[in-house]
Structures are given as structure tokens and as C-alpha cells.
């Protein structure tokens, strides 16, 4: 039941884009076309699941015994950067098709604060190893949902007659804000009603 709770929490209730406002750079930058948005979304799912898992291991096996947990932020940045590099190399070797599909989005994720965010939140909430992984996966899934909705919206926005000053990023931010308002419908009460 905790896993379902974590999934619902990170996909809907505290969606990284609409509630926590993390990872807005790729959210605005890569949401111009549905194809590339989906690519970016899956790359984030992939990296954030693995990053949550690996950072849990590093935190609990290295930082806690050494009593240097205050260094978690810089350590996690290090871990995520190295991890993305490694994952990129492995994908290129094992599946060139997937590598071409993810393309430039993979290295871009190194600087995506949503990934760092999920690693830090998982530690803060004192999740177990599988819970961390599930949290990472569902945070990525929430990001995929947000960027997919946004890109579908922006493809339609392109054809609208928008006042010149609002074209491009401004209208995208306004739309994202309205979507965030919509996501306020998901809150903890909903979670309690769903799974008690």
C-alpha cells in the first residue's frame, strides 16, 4: 500500500512540475513538440529511478557511517553527473536505437534539478531502498505526464492568434500556471480517501 501511496503522491499530489516547481527548464525548453517531450520524459524516468536507487545506497552506506550527511547535496550532484555519463555510455553500447531516440536529452538531465530533488526528498522522507526507487520512478512518470500535457497544449497554442508580447515562453508559463492550479485538486485528502 505504501508503494501505491508513493506513486500517487509523486505523480499527482506533489507533482514535480506543478506543485514543487522543479525541473522547469527542460519542461519549458523541450515541450515544443510532443515527440521530443516524450523522449525527454522517458529519459527523466530512466535517470531519476536509477539516481534515487544509487543515491540511497551512497547515502546509507557511505555518508551515514562517516557521519557526513551534511554533504549530501554536493555528493548527490557528483553521483548523478557520473551516473548519467555511465548510463549514456551503456545505452550507446547496448542499444544504439534507444541512444538515438533519447539523443541529446540524456546529458541534459545531468542538470535537471528534478532528479537531484527526488534524491534529496527520498533521503529526507527516510524511504527504504525499494521505496526510493519507486519514488524516483513515479517522480519521472509525473514529469512525463506534465511535459506530455504541456507539449500537446503548446502544439495547439502555436496555431492560435496570441498577442505578440505573449508568444513563446510567456504564454507557456501562463498555461503551466493554470495547469498547476488544476493540479491543486489533488491533495492529501484525496490520497486518504483513496487508500485510507
Amino acid at each position: 500500500m505504501t508503494y501505491i501511496g508513493i506513486i500517487i503522491t509523486f505523480v499527482f499530489i506533489t507533482n514535480f512540475i506543478f506543485t514543487r516547481f522543479l525541473g522547469l527548464c527542460p519542461f519549458i525548453g523541450v515541450s515544443k513538440k510532443v515527440d521530443s517531450a516524450v523522449g525527454m520524459g522517458f529519459a527523466v524516468i530512466f535517470v531519476s529511478s536509477i539516481a534515487a536507487l544509487v543515491t540511497w545506497v551512497i547515502f546509507n552506506l557511505i555518508l551515514v557511517p562517516l557521519n557526513i550527511t551534511y554533504l549530501q547535496t554536493i555528493t548527490f550532484i557528483l553521483v548523478i553527473a557520473a551516473l548519467v555519463q555511465l548510463v549514456e555510455m551503456m545505452i550507446q553500447k547496448i542499444s544504439p536505437e534507444l541512444y538515438r531516440a533519447l539523443g541529446i536529452y540524456l546529458p541534459l538531465i545531468t542538470t535537471n534539478c528534478a532528479v537531484l530533488g527526488i534524491a534529496l526528498i527520498a533521503v529526507q522522507e527516510e524511504y527504504g531502498v525499494i521505496e526510493s526507487f519507486v519514488a524516483g520512478f513515479s517522480a519521472g512518470a509525473g514529469f512525463l505526464m506534465a511535459i506530455l500535457l504541456m507539449s500537446a497544449l503548446r502544439e495547439r497554442l502555436d496555431r492560435e492568434d496570441i498577442p505578440k508580447a505573449f508568444r513563446g515562453a510567456p504564454i507557456a508559463f501562463i498555461s503551466a500556471g493554470l495547469m498547476a492550479l488544476g493540479f491543486m485538486a489533488f491533495d492529501m485528502t484525496l490520497l486518504k480517501n483513496l487508500i485510507g
Binding site: 551512497i58 557511505i62 555518508l63 562517516l66 557521519n67 557526513i68 554533504l71 554536493i74 555528493t75 557528483l78 553521483v79 557520473a82 555519463q85 555511465l86 555510455m89 551503456m90 550507446q92 553500447k93 544504439p96
Partner: peptide
């Protein structure tokens, strides 16, 4: 400890990545 922890991790990742880039070179 802080020095060893962070520097150690950094060196470990560096060596790991350079090894990986040799083995996984396309």
C-alpha cells in the same frame, strides 16, 4: 572523513568512468 568521503567518491567515479569508456567504446 568529509575529505576522504567526497574525494574518494570523486576519484572512484573518475576511474570507473574512464574504465567504462574504454570497455564500452563504440
Amino acid at each position: 572523513y568529509a575529505l576522504i568521503g567526497v574525494a574518494g567518491l570523486g576519484i572512484l567515479f573518475g576511474i570507473g568512468l574512464s574504465l567504462a569508456s574504454r570497455f564500452l567504446a563504440v
